[in-house]
Design a protein around this nucleic acid. Structure first.
Length: 636
RNA sequence: GCCCACAUAGCUCAGUAGGUAGAGUGCCGCCUUGGUAAGGCGGAGGUCACCGGUUCAAUCCCGGUUGUGGGCUCCA
């Protein structure tokens, strides 16, 4: 047999005898590569390592270091888990089992509901299968053969999947041991490649993600090439849980949620400081950006909601009440109220763009299973605004809002990504109008050179939107800011302005929020800073720690003075040692702890201990006050 | 709403093979007045989420309700 020449990732060309598998080539290049390679990219296509190239080509080996390698590794892990489940629970029907970020899952249809003990047994079985080191073997077959095969073994979900594959799709199966699964692949060479596996959790999941379909049992797991990597990952998860805003919210006494009000958070004094500081910052930014502030009622007559379309399109999310035999709704959105404010006066094109902002408290009936601390609640305050403008002002206004959002997120050092959501099934308005609105949003992003993904069919019922997503401590993302273009409300409410020509015209409207909801934003902030808020936000900015009783008086006088100057100060005058007070202050993440003893009283100074740096020495009390005041006002 | 799990002191958690509960921490009091991450002693504090059932007896077993957690669906 003749040789083939392959071009490697680093550009080198090497010749190998034809008939070798990619696995053997990897091993020939370097024994370590032979061990670590999971799959290969042969001429740009992900390929199993037991493939035998017969021509020259480009070759790149993929290891666990590569995102694609992780995906294949976890996907193979999912197959092994499925094999284990079918071994232990014969008759279990398979649905889908993909790799996901940080792991994999597989959905099963099984008479018996799995218990945590079952997970342990499955994990043991997985280990056994790994030890037996079965090769993953690929085979391709025709549509008819595939349908026939999966029908015969009763895998009706697979049959449904095959039926939905495009006409020209290559249909392949993978087999390891006596287990066969419909799968495009590729896979690692054999089950022995998988080293450390852990099944993480059990959950229900609807077939094809549709709640009308049967609920299947989903098992989540993760896997790593080394036990140590698995342990590190689990440790990182534990650490992330310590940042959970629900935990920190309780520890720092920011807020609580009581059984009497599921999804209706109670803000405690310290949480209110966060809210109020955020709102003050928000008002400053919005005043500068040319916004006017309004406040509209929380309860409004049914007729308004019928007119806005909420009665038809949002009914199941709304709360209702009756006043004097008339039906009213508790507002789930602020827009209809803003419409009425707009309509209460005549407008000229000269007023545009007219930017009406509102910190609006809305109530939405969220399903009980979706509530999540402050991130997902049933009552929240949107930092809303409705912008009214001429059609030619649209792009500029959208860009203004994008820049405002960017500025506000940057202040906190947030990473975010943007999604463009398009027309949903349940929508008002024609396709043309939707297309026009969607293009305007895309255009603004393009002009600012910003990246975004498309989220098909996820727009609001009245218009498409740009959503800004932030991450929580576990990497779950939450929509915060959003910009929504709306050609519907102005129509429904017959909004007009007098144009240059003296005639009435229809304005264009944008809904937008920056924080999204104050509640969710505080949740995100808490996890981002792990409770160690920047000084301007910190509920307690300074705590004075007198060493002995005789120093309390001096501390009290500083506290009184500084409070007048707008600093949030406490004195820890408890009968405890200084180390004890410091420990508590540190655990409460107070930015500045000031130790005060005889020296400090005598010199009118304070000994400063900064949250992260620790003891930074003594300074004059007045000098410290000036420094912290400038730190606060600059919001550093 | 659906699936699985969980609910014990303000907080974090033990516990009872069914005989009405315990630690740490926090809180209060006393001693101690101490210089950069936990000083000592004492005390108060719980209808063991709620409602039923089984039982001589239920915090524990069974059923239901509510709430919470992890997912699914849905959403700021």
């Amino acid at each position: 047999m003749s040789d083939i020449t392959v071009q490697l990732k680093n550009g080198d060309e090497k010749s190998f005898p034809a008939g070798l598998t990619l696995q053997e080539i990897a091993k020939a290049i370097h024994p370590k590569l032979g061990k670590e390679a999971l799959v290969a990219k042969w001429n740009g296509n992900l390929t199993d390592l037991n493939y035998k190239p017969e021509t020259d080509g480009k070759l790149e080996f993929i290891t666990f270091e590569d995102p694609e390698g992780q995906e294949v590794y976890r996907h193979s892990s999912a197959h092994i888990m499925a094999q284990a489940v079918q071994k232990l629970f014969p008759g279990t029907v398979l649905a889908i089992g993909p790799a996901i970020d940080n792991g994999f899952y597989y959905d099963f249809d099984c008479e018996k509901t799995f218990t945590p003990e079952d997970l342990e047994a499955i994990e043991q079985e997985i280990k056994r299968i790994i030890k037996e080191d079965h090769p993953f073997e690929r085979s391709e077959l025709s549509r008819e053969e595939a349908l026939d095969f999966f029908r015969k073994i009763g895998e009706h979900y697979k049959v449904e999947l095959i039926e939905n594959l495009p006409e020209d799709a290559v249909i392949s199966m993978y087999q390891q041991g006596d287990f066969v699964d419909l799968c495009a692949g590729p896979h690692v060479p054999s089950t022995g490649k998988i080293k450390a596996v852990k099944l993480m959790s059990l959950a229900g999941a609807y077939w094809r993600g549709d709640e009308k379909n049967k609920m299947l049992q989903r098992i989540y797991g993760t896997s790593f090439p080394k036990q140590k990597e698995l342990e590190e990952y689990l440790f990182k998860l534990e650490e992330a849980k310590k940042r959970d805003h629900r935990k920190i919210g309780t520890q720092l006494n920011l807020y609580s949620i009581e059984e009497e009000g599921p999804g209706f958070p109670f803000f405690h004094p310290k949480g209110m400081i966060l809210r109020n500081e955020l709102e003050a910052y928000w008002r400053e930014e919005h005043r500068r950006a040319g916004y006017l502030e309004i406040k509209t009622p929380i309860i409004l007559n049914r007729s308004l909601w019928e007119r806005s379309g909420h009665w038809d399109h949002y009914h199941e999310n709304m709360y209702f009440t009756t006043i004097d035999d008339q039906e009213f709704a508790i507002k789930p959105m602020n827009c209809p109220g803003a419409m009425l404010v707009y309509k209460s006066q005549q407008h000229s094109y000269r007023d545009f763009p007219l930017r009406l902002a509102e910190m609006g408290l809305v109530h939405r009936h969220e399903k009980s299973g979706v509530l999540h601390g402050l991130m997902r609640v049933r009552a929240f305050t949107q930092d809303d605004a409705h912008l009214f403008m001429l059609p030619e002002q649209i792009t500029a206004e959208i860009k203004n809002v994008i820049n405002l959002v960017d500025r506000c997120y940057r202040l906190f050092g947030f990473q975010y990504h943007v999604e463009l959501s398009t027309k949903p099934e349940k929508a008002m308005g024609s396709d043309e109008i939707w297309e026009q609105a969607t293009d305007a949003l895309a255009q603004a992003m393009k002009e600012l050179g910003m990246e975004y993904r498309i989220n098909e069919g996820d727009g609001a019922f009245y218009g498409p939107k740009l959503d800004f997503h932030l991450e929580d401590s576990l990497g779950r993302t939450w929509q915060c800011g959003t910009i929504q273009l709306d050609f519907q409300m102005p129509e429904k409410f017959d909004l007009t302005y007098i144009g240059e020509d003296g005639q009435r015209h229809r304005p264009v409207m944008i809904h937008r929020v920056v924080f999204g909801s104050i509640e969710r934003f505080i949740g995100i902030l808490t996890e981002h800073f792990a409770g160690a808020f920047p000084t301007w936000l910190a509920p307690v900015q300074v705590r004075l720690l007198p060493i002995a009783d005789r120093h309390v008086e001096y501390c009290d006088s500083l506290k009184e003075k500084w409070e007048q100057e707008g600093i949030r100060v406490e004195v820890d005058d408890r009968n405890e040692k200084i180390g004890y007070k410091i420990r508590q202050g540190q655990l409460e993440k107070i930015p500045y702890l000031l130790v005060v003893g005889d020296k400090e009283v005598e010199n009118k100074s304070v000994s400063v201990r900064k949250r992260r740096e620790g003891d930074i020495g003594t300074m004059e009390a007045s000098a410290f006050a000036e420094e912290i005041k400038s730190e606060i006002s600059s919001r550093k």
